[in-house]
Amino acid sequence: MRKRGLIDFLLPASVVVVLVFFYIPIATLVLFSFTSSRFLSWPIPGFSLRWYGELLADRNFWAALTNSAVLAAVATVLATTLGILGAFAWMRWRFRCQRAFQVLTFAPLLFPQLLLGVVMLLWFSVLAGWLNTSPGLWSAVIGHVVYITPFAIVIVSVQMYGFDTSLEQAAEDAGASRWQVLSQVTLPLLWPGIFSALIFAFLLSWGNFYITYSLSGSARTLPTYVFSGIAVGSSPIYPALATLTFAPALVLIVIVDVMRRRAARRRAGA
């Protein structure tokens, strides 16, 4: 073994420093959500749950919460379904112009989100004019699907990498129909990837600001509700909102991790 030097201390230390950096704003929000003062300045004079009460009494908060939930639910289902299809087309076969197909379905991930939103807004304004409506939640759903599908494709593709097709072959030889093979062999094997894609898509949509901001018209989701709120003046109800939404997100991510680990163990055991 080599002797331990300064570097053996510095490398793990860099990880710790970066983690602290990542959690500075998050911890700050949690801290301020329990303040008893109406001003968000340090030090906090005392602890109270008053701002949670004020937040829950705000009708705009509930409207934004409903919009966020509907938008995220619909966008998640659509983006993950398209992500599964896309992963098959990316990984399982070789066909003509596959490269072009991959570029097309990956490109939105490489776009600054605001520009993606703006470019789509131009088109949706035209479409809405033809259809005699105006941009709203429906256009935000489409925007989220275009932005999130590439992430879903990548996540499901990772699960598909190294997929053992002989299992499908065996099922087919045993007389299973194509549909049976898909629903009883292929999809269950891909399930950990599909599940991560679902959670990832949900959280990406739930926390998305840029695309919703460009495309949702007058409908507000939680991020745009907070954005317009802090533009007018900060209030401790926003840290309270942050703390309330952190808990379920953390639970979802831990579930994904447990699932992934269990799948990895099963694969190692097999």
Binding site: F200, G207, L222, F227, S234, P239, A242, A249
Partner: peptide
């Protein structure tokens, strides 16, 4: 994955 508006705030 946390809401970017909240993080900047």
């Amino acid at each position: 994955l946390t809401d970017a508006v909240l993080k900047t705030f």
